[in-house]
C-alpha cells in the first residue's frame, strides 16, 4: 500500500499545484476507508453531533411557522354577560374598528349544539336544565392587524366593556409559542457552539492519532528533506473530509428524523384545522451545515497538526 504522501508531485505552475493537491486529497480521503483508522466511526459521531442542533433548528423553525400561520387569521371570542338578549348593537359598534374584518354572533342555542357536536359531552349536556351559555361574538381580525400587539390591545379594551363577561383568545397561547421559539433559537445557538467545539475535539483527536501512528514515517520524511507543508497536507485534508462527510451524515440523519416525524406531527397539527405542512432542512441550511462541518474539520486539523507535528523531530 502506498503512503499518503506518495501522490505529491513537482509543484510548478498553478495547474500542477492544483493537480497535486487533488491527488493528495483523493489519497487522504481513501485512507479514511481504512477500517483500522476507525474513521467511519468518527464521521458518524460527527454526523450525530451536528444533527442535534440541526434537528432542534428545524423543530424551532416549524413552531415559528406554525405561529405565523396562526397570525394570518387571528381570532378572539367575546363571551357576553348572561342578560344580553341581542348583541347586534355591540356587534355593529365593534365592526367599525379598523382592525376587525368580520364578527360572527353565535347564539346560546347555536353554541350549545356546537358544543354537543364537537365536545363529545353530548349526553352530559342533556342533563342541564337550562342553557348555561351566553351569546358569543367571534371576532375575526384583518390580515394586517393579526399580530400579537393589535390583538392584545383589542382584548384589553373589550374586557372593559360592560356587555363582555369574558374574553378568550389564542393570543396568550401564541405569546407562549413565541417565547418557546425564542428559547429554541437561543438553544440552537448554544448547542451549535457546544457541539461545534465537540466536533473540533473529535476531529483534532483523530488527526492526532493519525499523526502518532505515522511518527516513524514523518521522522523519515523530515530527515530526507520533507517540508512541514508537505507533511501537513494529508492530515489537513483528512480533517476537512471528515468534517464534510460528518456534515453530510448530519443532513441525512436530520432528514430521516423529520420524515419519521412528519406523519404524527401533521396529524397533530391538523387537528387544529390548519393545512400546515412540516418543513424539513432547506437546501440553504444543508449548505450551511456542510460549510460548517468542513470548516470545523479544517480548523480542527490545522490546530491539531500545528500542535503535534512539531513534536516529531528526527
Amino acid at each position: 500500500m502506498m503512503g499518503i504522501w506518495w501522490t505529491a508531485r513537482r509543484t510548478s505552475g498553478l495547474i500542477n499545484y492544483l493537480k497535486n493537491n487533488f491527488r493528495v486529497f483523493v489519497r487522504s480521503t481513501a485512507q479514511l476507508t481504512r477500517p483500522a483508522g476507525g474513521a467511519i466511526m468518527t464521521v458518524v459521531a460527527i454526523g450525530i453531533t451536528l444533527a442535534l442542533p440541526a434537528l432542534l433548528y428545524v423543530v424551532t423553525d416549524n413552531i415559528d411557522q406554525l405561529g405565523r400561520n396562526w397570525e394570518t387569521r387571528a381570532q378572539v371570542n367575546l363571551f357576553l354577560v348572561k342578560n344580553v338578549e341581542n348583541p347586534a348593537a355591540l356587534q355593529a359598534r365593534l365592526q367599525s374598528l379598523k382592525e376587525i374584518d368580520r364578527i360572527d354572533a353565535v347564539s346560546p342555542d347555536q353554541g350549545l349544539s356546537d358544543f354537543k357536536k364537537y365536545s363529545g359531552f353530548a349526553r352530559a349536556s342533556d342533563l342541564l336544565d337550562a342553557n348555561p351559555l351566553p351569546w358569543t361574538l367571534v371576532v375575526h381580525f384583518t390580515r394586517e392587524h393579526s399580530n400579537i400587539e393589535a390583538v392584545q390591545r383589542f382584548i384589553d379594551r373589550a374586557a372593559q366593556l360592560p356587555e363582555v363577561d369574558n374574553v378568550r383568545s389564542d393570543v396568550l397561547w401564541l405569546k407562549r409559542l413565541t417565547a418557546v421559539v425564542e428559547i429554541g433559537h437561543r438553544l440552537v445557538w448554544v448547542l451549535a457552539i457546544l457541539l461545534g467545539l465537540a466536533v473540533v475535539v473529535i476531529i483534532s483527536n483523530t488527526v492526532r492519532l493519525a499523526i502518532l501512528s505515522r511518527t516513524h514515517e514523518i521522522e523519515v520524511i523530515k530527515l530526507i528533506g520533507g517540508t512541514d507543508r508537505f507533511i501537513r497536507r494529508p492530515f489537513l485534508y483528512q480533517g476537512f473530509v471528515q468534517g464534510a462527510l460528518g456534515a453530510v451524515t448530519a443532513v441525512l440523519l436530520t432528514t430521516i428524523c423529520i420524515e419519521a416525524l412528519r406523519e404524527p406531527i401533521t396529524g397533530l397539527v391538523g387537528e387544529y384545522g390548519s393545512g400546515y405542512r412540516l418543513v424539513g432542512l432547506s437546501w440553504t441550511n444543508a449548505g450551511v451545515l456542510f460549510a460548517l462541518g468542513s470548516g470545523l474539520g479544517w480548523v480542527a486539523s490545522r490546530w491539531s497538526v500545528g500542535r503535534h507535528l512539531k513534536d516529531i523531530e528526527p
Binding site: G3, W5, W6, A8, R9, R10, I221, I224, G225, G226
Partner: peptide
C-alpha cells in the same frame, strides 16, 4: 520518497 519529497518530475 526523496524524489517525491523534493518535488522531482
Amino acid at each position: 520518497l526523496p524524489l517525491v519529497v523534493s518535488g522531482y518530475s
